[in-house]
């Protein structure tokens, strides 16, 4: 049975008309001990089938390429551009529920059709010159979470020093407990700076600049 209903498919297709260039979607799965891997594969397959510019590659964790992408948990989705350039944009866990929105925004972003930011904000993002790692912990029922994920991914897309990951807190219980996640979206920047809620880009940048 199809996971995404026809009505949603049609809506998503219209949104995908915004896609500019090809996006290579890499899904990394693990054969055992991965409760959500097969659902995620069905989901990503159905999504990428909705537009010819979306090309899916499914890898096993043991694959060299999977290792090169620096994936540590499964399922993981990495978005690469048409030249297979890796911007450090990852989704750990299935981006369903509300997170379908950040997944779509990520695809549009990497295709080169993301929203253009004001010049002063672009200048601030381009100035980031040290390695920045952003983890955004989410739940699938959280309406504020996709906004936080999309902003983190946008920063990663715009500056090669930034990596950003969505982490579904219920799937990755252990790491969520480690980071003491009991409210979402929880944003962790370089391990020690924490933000809670769908913060404006400004708050991300203030935190990054303060590191």
């Amino acid at each position: 049975m199809a996971m995404i209903d026809d009505n949603s498919k049609n809506q998503i297709k219209t949104i995908f008309e915004q896609l500019k260039e090809q996006v290579n979607v890499v899904l990394i799965v693990k054969k055992e001990e991965c409760e959500t891997c097969s659902d995620t594969q069905t989901f990503v397959t159905e999504m990428t089938d909705l537009h010819e510019k979306l090309v899916l590659e499914v890898l096993d964790e043991s694959d060299d390429k999977a290792k090169e992408l620096g994936v540590t948990m499964y399922p993981a989705i990495v978005l690469l551009d048409k030249d297979n350039k890796d911007y450090g944009i990852k989704f750990y866990g299935i981006p369903a529920g509300h997170e379908i929105n950040s997944f779509i925004m990520g695809l549009i972003e990497v295709s080169g059709a993301g929203e253009v930011l004001p010049d002063d904000v672009i200048a601030r993002i381009e100035k980031i010159n040290k390695p920045i790692d952003i983890k955004v912990f989410i739940t699938l029922s959280c309406p504020h979470c996709p906004g936080a994920v999309a902003k983190a991914h946008k920063l990663a897309f715009m500056n090669k020093n930034v990596n950003a990951q969505m982490i579904e807190a219920n799937t990755f219980n252990e790491i969520s407990t480690k980071y003491n996640v009991s409210g979402v979206p929880k944003i962790v920047i370089n391990e020690d700076t924490e933000l809670l809620g769908d913060q404006p880009l400004d708050a991300f940048l203030n935190s990054i600049e303060g590191l």
Binding site: C142, A169, S176, V181, K186
Partner: peptide, 14 residues
């Protein structure tokens, strides 16, 4: 954010 929440639909599933 460490147990105190104002959004049940966001944080309930935790």
């Amino acid at each position: 954010g460490k147990g105190v929440s104002y959004c049940a639909i966001c944080d309930g599933s935790l």
